[in-house]
Write a protein that binds this DNA or RNA. Structure first.
Length: 196
DNA sequence: CCTAGGATTAGCT
DNA sequence: GCTAATCCTAGGC
C-alpha cells in the first residue's frame, strides 16, 4: 500500500488478538495506524468497555443497538452519541461476551486535506481529539456497524514496538467512573484531554 | 406510551 | 464554565 515509508516495520491486523479482554486490547492499540478509505492516522487514545461494567452499552445484554458488540471480534461497533456524533469501537471478546474498545483520538497523518475539510479546518490538534471528532474526520457512518476491520474501507496496522502508555479513568460516563480503562500515548498532543 | 439521559462538541459568557 | 443541539435507546408505567 502507498503512503507508508515504514510499511515493512508494520504488521497487519492479524497480529492483534481481538479475542481477548477489552482492557488488554485497548492499550495494545495505542500507536496503531487506523485508516478508513485511506484517511486516518495513529491511535493515541482508547477506552475499554465490557459486559461486567455498567458504563458499557453491552451491560445488560444484547439489544438492537449494541448487537455488533456481541458479533465477531475484530469488527466495528458504530453508535450515535448524543444524537449528533458517530463513534467507532473495535469489537473484542472476553469469554464469549460482548466487549469493545472506543477509539477516542488519533494523530492525523493520512488524508490530511480531507480530514481538515470534514472538520471545518480547525487546528491540527483538534482534528481528531475526541470520539465524535474521529468519527467526523474519518466519515464514520452507521453502515459501517458490524463491518470487519481487516477489509475495505478499514485498515488497521499495529506498530511492533511498545510505546509509553498513560492510564486513567474513562471520560464522560456516570457509572463505573473509577475503572481505569482509558489508555493514551504518553505526552501526545492529540489526546482529547491530558492524563493527570 | 412517555420521558430521561446519554462512551460529545462547539460556541458563548 | 455553561449549555444547546439532536435523536433514539432503554426503562418505567
Amino acid at each position: 500500500m502507498s503512503g507508508f515509508g515504514a510499511a515493512g516495520q508494520l504488521r497487519q491486523l492479524g497480529s492483534v488478538d481481538f479475542q481477548d479482554d477489552a482492557f488488554r486490547v485497548a492499550p495494545r492499540l495505542i500507536g496503531a495506524i487506523l485508516l478508513v478509505n485511506g484517511v486516518g492516522g495513529r491511535i493515541v487514545e482508547t477506552e475499554a468497555y465490557d459486559h461486567h461494567d455498567p458504563a458499557s452499552h453491552c451491560f445488560g445484554g444484547l439489544t438492537e443497538r449494541n448487537k455488533a458488540m456481541f458479533g465477531p471480534p475484530g469488527c466495528a461497533y458504530v453508535y450515535r452519541s448524543y444524537g449528533i456524533h458517530w463513534c467507532l469501537n473495535f469489537v473484542c471478546r472476553e469469554s464469549g461476551h460482548g466487549a469493545g474498545v472506543l477509539i477516542r483520538a488519533l494523530e492525523p497523518l493520512h488524508g490530511l486535506e480531507q480530514i481538515s475539510a470534514r472538520r471545518g479546518h480547525r487546528p491540527l490538534r483538534q482534528l481528531c481529539a475526541g470520539p465524535g471528532r474521529v468519527g467526523q474526520a474519518l466519515a464514520i457512518q452507521h453502515g459501517y456497524n458490524g463491518h470487519p476491520l481487516d477489509t475495505p474501507p478499514f485498515e488497521v496496522w499495529v506498530a511492533p514496538a511498545a510505546l509509553p502508555i498513560s492510564v486513567g479513568p474513562r471520560i464522560g460516563i456516570s457509572k463505573g467512573v473509577d475503572t481505569p480503562w482509558r489508555f493514551g500515548l504518553t505526552g501526545s498532543k492529540f489526546l482529547s484531554k491530558p492524563f493527570l
